Structure formats: structure tokens, C-alpha cells
Amino acid sequence: MWWIFALLSALFAALTAIFAKVGIKGVDTDLATAIRTVVILMMAWGIVWFKGTASGFAGLTKTNWTFLILSGCATGLSWICYFKALQLGKVTQVAPVDKLSVALAIVLAAMFLKEPLTLKTGMGALLIIGGTFVLIF
């Protein structure tokens, strides 16, 4: 079941690039990111209230808070940089470079989360890196 959500995530990420490229024309990218963030904020809280999962808020630990805040900061910085890159470059170049995050996540997961870096995973990461360079040059 996880792979269905992963495929949907990829589809929506692809649409994000296309919609954003059109939407940021002549707009400050930080303003565009702020608008996008408000929309996401409303959607996320709407889903939480609709599902009735807001009660889990009280059970968050200090570690949960710390790393969710760090994740939010990283997401925000990623979006700001992504929108600026889209404004300056082509989607066909920016999107593949952005997807280097997959290879970086594999390496960082092995380093910090002690997830196994198998031959298959390592080869996949190298193929992603290679494919990115093919697409941008």
C-alpha cells in the first residue's frame, strides 16, 4: 500500500513543478512560497480535523516537536530554493536536480538512521545521480 502513496506523491510533486513554473512568472519566489505554504497549512489542518486526529497533538514529545520543527524548517528552505530555481531555470533541469534528494536521503539515512545501505540501494542511488547528470547536461 505504501507504494501507491509514493506514486501519488511523485505525481503531485511533478504537478507541483508544472503549476509552480506557471504560477511564479513575474512573482517574487518568496511570496509565492508563502502563498503555497498557507494553502498547504489549510489543507493539512483540514485533513486533521476531518479525520479527527487532532487529539494526538497532546501526546507529542519534546523529540517529536524538535524534529518536526527541524523538518518544517528544512521543507521551507527547500521550497524557497526550489521556487527560485524554477524561476531561473527549466523544469526539465530543476526537477531532476531536486530529485537528487532521493540519493541524498539514502546516504543520510545510512549515516544517521543506521538504515542498511545495500548493494541494490547504493546502485539505485548511483543511477539516480547518473540520470540527473544526463538530464541537466
Rank of each mutant, 00 (worst) to 15 (best):
Ile40Met: 13
Gly46Met: 02
Ser78Glu: 06
Ser78Arg: 09
Trp2Thr: 11
Gly56Leu: 02
Val91Asp: 04
Phe137Gln: 13
Ala17Pro: 04
Leu60Ser: 05
Ile24Asp: 04
Thr121Arg: 10
Cys81Ile: 10
Pro96Lys: 03
Leu117Ala: 08
Asn64His: 12
Asp30His: 10
Trp3Val: 14
Ser55His: 14
Lys21Phe: 06
Leu108Gly: 00
Gly23Glu: 11
Ala44Phe: 11
Trp49Ala: 00
Ala95His: 12
Leu126Cys: 09
Leu15Cys: 15
Trp45Ala: 15
Trp49Leu: 04
Leu135Gly: 09
Thr132Trp: 01
Thr66Glu: 14
Thr33Ser: 08
Thr66Cys: 15
Gly46Asn: 08
Ser55Met: 11
Ala13Val: 13
Leu7Pro: 08
Ser78Tyr: 01
Trp65Asn: 07
Val91Arg: 05
Ile18Arg: 08
Lys99Asp: 04
Phe50Lys: 14
Gln93Thr: 15
Val39Asn: 02
Thr16Ala: 10
Val94Ser: 10
Val91Pro: 05
Gly76Tyr: 03
Gly122Glu: 05
Glu115Thr: 11
Leu7Arg: 10
Phe5Trp: 12
Cys81Pro: 08
Val97Phe: 00
Ile80Glu: 09
Ala20His: 02
Leu88His: 06
Gly124Pro: 04
Leu126Met: 12
Lys25Gln: 15
Lys62Ala: 15
Val107Pro: 02
Gly56Pro: 03
Ile80Tyr: 08
Ala14Asp: 03
Val134Thr: 03
Lys62Ser: 14
Val39Ala: 07
Gly26Ile: 00
Thr61Val: 08
Ser55Arg: 13
Leu41Lys: 03
Ala105His: 06
Lys114Ile: 07
Leu7Met: 12
Gly56Met: 01
Gly131Cys: 09
Thr61Ile: 08
Ala10Ser: 13
Leu100Thr: 03
Gly89Trp: 01
Ala10Leu: 00
Gly46His: 02
Thr121His: 05
Gln87Val: 00
Pro96Trp: 04
Asp30Pro: 06
